[in-house]
Amino acid sequence: MTRASAQVVVTGAGIAVRGRATPADLLDRGPVDTAAPDPADTLTGRGLRYKDRATRLGMVAARAALADAGVLDVVTPSTPDDSFGVVTSSNYGNLDTVCQTVRTIDEETYLGTSPMMLPATSSNVIASWLAITHGLRGANVTVCNGRTSGLDAVRRACLLIAAGRVSRVLVVGVEPDLPEVRHVVGDDGSVALFDGAAAILLAGARSAAASGTRIHAGIGRYAKRADAADAIAEACAGTGRIGLRLSSQETTVDSEVHDLPAVLGDAAGALGVLQVAAATAWLGGGRRAGDALAVCGDDGATAAMVVTAPASFPAGPRSRELT
């Protein structure tokens, strides 16, 4: 369960986080300026009224990642791409719609609801709008998998490429901080919840290299285990020095540590994607000595993933991307 993702590279990254403009800003350990503009407000155009907050945040991060990779104007609804997939990760993305609707029905019967809300009752609504907005017709997957969900989503995107289903995947992790979410997670106001999104663009290494795309980082080994130490050991096996560890968990890995939730709040299903975006920025196109390690999970399961400097991803025969 650890081999997964050799030969997949990161070609773009973007975020929608209040007080943080680019993935490099995720490395900033300073407190978030809560008075900073809401990134969701940068969207303009028709139809926003009926898109939930998670969808809007996801769209902002996705747009930034596609722009970072230089493909924002290349893949569009009028020039759709059958081999461009989407994987999103979110646990709480559509709780607002579901809770508000059940309250409306209780107070006003079904007649009080708006038909425009129907698509957002289905938890895949974020991935759906990302595909529509950018013309992405490949496999479209919404991972809702608890605390490991973000890294599980990155790993699933790698598998879609390795299996030959798609050649590129937009991966978005998003969680909204909303009253309905706070109610459902049982928060009394004392917990800081992350409100934002991160997006990365993944491609097969050889096709990215062949197309001359700038490669920011490589996706290394992924492991998921009941025990955090086991997951970390498996993910790091065969890896060189880990220079940055993005995690809250205690480990024996000797490296700089950056615990994103301590700065940005509990990021739940968005965390893994946020970590890979931060790792990509930290690697900075190969300036660092060592790789980065992302770890997320809870007492039931932990996922760990190595993010490598661009030049160090292995050239094995596993991917079927060119067949």
């Binding site: 369960m1 646990n91 289905s122 938890s123 895949n124 759906s128 479209n140 997957v141 919404t142 991972v143 809702c144 998998n145 608890g146 969900s149 599980d152 699933r156 459902v184 997670v185 049982g186 998921k224 285990r225 009941a226 809870d298 039931g300 399961a301």
Partner: peptide, 26 residues
């Protein structure tokens, strides 16, 4: 809320670790 995506039941009943819930509509 940890029961939102079935992972806890899969772990407690089947000791499953490699679980993946995909909310891919119908």
């Amino acid at each position: 809320v940890r029961d939102l995506n079935f992972g806890r039941m899969l772990r407690s009943r089947f000791a499953a670790v490699h679980t993946e819930t995909v909310a891919n509509a119908c």
